[in-house]
Write a protein that binds this DNA or RNA. Structure first.
Lengths: 212, 212
DNA sequence: CGAGGAATTGATAATCCTCAATAGCCGTGG
DNA sequence: CCACGGCTATTGAGGATTATCAATTCCTCG
């Protein structure tokens, strides 16, 4: 079900909120190269995961290839639990990624903690619905950057581990629109691009006010 | 917190899936007139609810008044549980609605069942993300009708208890677009409108294939 | 240094929104 | 019972945002 599993030492991020809480000892730690599948739509749900290093995208496909990225998961965050017995989504490593893997039994024993995680996941998805359903391209991208910034500790510098196509598929846009909006934000000096995957937030208040 | 609460007899729909499971004896039954608030953003989370008759919309607002309806709840379905201690959403009765109300203590005692409900809620929200993020107006409305149809038992006739504005805010569209798409589906005889709130699905397969 | 993928930029097109007017429905009250 | 008022829904015209297609440019990595 996963490639290159290598039991080894792990180090978790400090717990900051419920979504980052370690729920029980992991069975093992697995490493995935960029782009590798962690699970696929239809796979039996047997495990849940906590990102140790790297980043993960969870997404769904339409028959004609259109893709909706439902969530990204950064170090310390958990994913992999879903309703039913089979996955409805795909999960892939965005970059080289290390995961702590928890077995199904642990999940059943910890339904209480999982409830909080599931509720947090629902809240995230619903917040995301508002962004995609009712905000324009600029607002979506501002919201995305603010969200990533907060999940990375709130500093000025934000790392975008994912490709533009991932961002576009997460926000319901095209890569061209993502690129154009970022250029406009750069021209207004709201942000600066150190390189394509590293942005500096020059005007945090301006960025936040763009989110509405 | 709610208006016009009147303890009285209740009758639940037959349980069809986990989202329709009765989780414990209700504390009371409350009735709301169309448009009445059930809870507001910021309210303490103290209860959860099961629709007995009528329909409920759960939504969120942007500061400028834009609204995203996150979910509708039909008879038999539960809602009201969220992450954290305060509501992030508003809930209102769409039409005259009767609810079974469960107290916080029941929820804590039944975290197992609530986990399933939370996971189902997350799955619904994520499916909804795909619809809004990556499907065109016609696909969104087809998906909406198919979803409603299935939740109403799968017959040919579908009841739309909500206003066009509710549908638009649920699908990330405007009322005009909703109206135009429905007219087009009517012209193609995929559906027929008995009246504005009652549709007959004339070509179920065609409708389903429009969802992709 | 070269090759290939990723990102940006440009020109044009399509979808959906906005604004505006008309039509339909429902309940109230004469 | 019918007429009126108000809200809801539909339809139309024009415009804006975002998508599509195409061409560079930039980066990364071998």
């Amino acid at each position: 079900m996963y490639a290159a599993a290598q039991p080894k030492e792990q180090s978790f991020q400090p717990a900051e909120d419920v979504a980052r809480t370690q729920i029980s000892a992991p069975h093992l730690v697995a490493t995935y190269k960029a782009g590798r599948e962690i699970y696929a739509e239809g796979d039996l749900i047997e495990k849940c995961y906590q990102v140790s290093t790297g980043a993960v995208r969870v997404y769904r496909l339409l028959s004609d290839g259109r893709r909706q990225v439902v969530s990204f998961h950064l170090p310390g965050e958990m994913f992999g639990f879903e309703a039913g017995s089979n996955h409805s989504f795909f999960a892939e490593a965005v970059t080289e990624t290390t995961l702590a893997v928890f077995g199904r039994r642990h999940m059943q024993e910890r339904s209480r903690e999982l409830l909080a995680l599931a509720l947090t996941g629902m809240a995230r998805a619903q917040q995301h619905l508002l962004v995609i359903g009712r905000q324009c391209a600029e607002e979506r991208i501002a919201a995305f950057m603010v969200d990533l910034c907060e999940r990375q500790g709130g500093g000025r510098q934000v790392r975008l581990p994912m490709l533009r196509q991932d961002i576009a598929d997460y926000l319901g846009l095209t890569i061209e629109t993502v690129s154009r909006v970022m250029t406009k934000l750069k021209e207004r000096s709201v942000i600066a691009l150190r390189d394509a995957k590293t942005i500096d937030i020059m005007k945090p208040d301006a960025l936040r006010s763009l989110c509405n």
